[in-house]
């Protein structure tokens, strides 16, 4: 270790890895991972969320799983829950859609309306 900069670089990198252990003031992406969700392809969706967040160096978002919310016909489902409690429910997802949600909703703060449950029910 020759400089504080080096230490800081290690710190930044390690913080990213353990960010998951901090739940405060974080946006959560909750992916439905019950039998219905998994069968409909929820796992690649979840992995896409994780990879995309990682690629963009975002560590203020936790990806977690949940069970069946009851609308199995819409699976894979994911909900984006912001720290203030505001919830957006996305349905019939795939990996590509997940990446778009990260880009538009998480990064730019604009929910992707066409993927939401409201749009699907029309």
């Amino acid at each position: 270790m020759k400089s504080i900069k080096e230490l800081e670089a290690i710190r930044e990198r390690a913080l990213k890895e353990i960010a998951i252990r901090d739940n405060e003031n974080k946006t959560r992406i909750v992916v439905g991972m019950a039998t219905c969700g998994i069968a409909a392809g929820a796992r690649p969706v979840m992995n896409a969320f994780i990879e995309e967040l990682n690629k963009r160096g975002i560590n203020t978002v936790n990806v977690t799983m949940t069970g069946c919310v009851g609308v199995c016909r819409f699976e894979p489902i994911a909900e984006v829950i912001e720290p203030n409690g505001e919830k957006t429910t996305y349905v019939k997802l795939d990996a590509e859609k997940a990446r778009r949600i990260v880009a538009e909703h998480i990064v730019n703060g604009r929910p992707v309306l066409e993927f939401t449950i409201g749009a699907a029910e029309k």
Partner: peptide
């Protein structure tokens, strides 16, 4: 050691 550094480890020494 990286996890220790993440939680401010070795900052005091620096």
């Amino acid at each position: 050691i990286d996890e220790y550094i993440a939680y401010d480890g070795y900052r005091a020494l620096a």
